[in-house]
C-alpha cells in the first residue's frame, strides 16, 4: 500500500481510496443513492459529521439504504 492510499472495507467489499480525505469527499465514489446512512467501525456517523470525518486505513464502513422490512 502506498502512503497516498488507504484500504477500507465498504459494505463488506475491499476498496482502495485516496488517503487524507474526508467521508464527504469519498461518498460520491462509494454510493449513488440519495437516501442513505453511514456507520464507521460500527459507530453511527451523522450527516452533519461527514465533512469532518477523515477515513483511515482499515476503516469498516457500513452504508445503508431504505429496504423492505417486516
Amino acid at each position: 500500500m502506498s502512503a497516498t492510499e488507504i484500504r477500507v472495507l465498504c459494505n463488506g467489499e475491499h476498496r482502495r481510496l485516496a488517503a487524507g480525505r474526508t467521508l464527504a469527499e469519498h461518498l460520491p465514489q462509494l454510493t449513488q443513492a440519495c437516501d442513505f446512512a453511514v456507520a464507521i467501525n460500527a459507530v453511527f456517523v451523522p450527516k452533519s459529521a461527514y465533512a469532518e470525518t477523515r477515513l483511515v486505513d482499515g476503516d469498516r464502513i457500513e452504508l445503508v439504504i431504505p429496504m423492505q422490512g417486516g
Partner: peptide, 17 residues
Amino acid sequence: VALRRQLPGAGGGDDFW
C-alpha cells in the same frame, strides 16, 4: 421498513422506496 447495505440485485432500491 428496514435498512440494508446497498448491494447489486439485492432488492429494495428506488422502485420500492
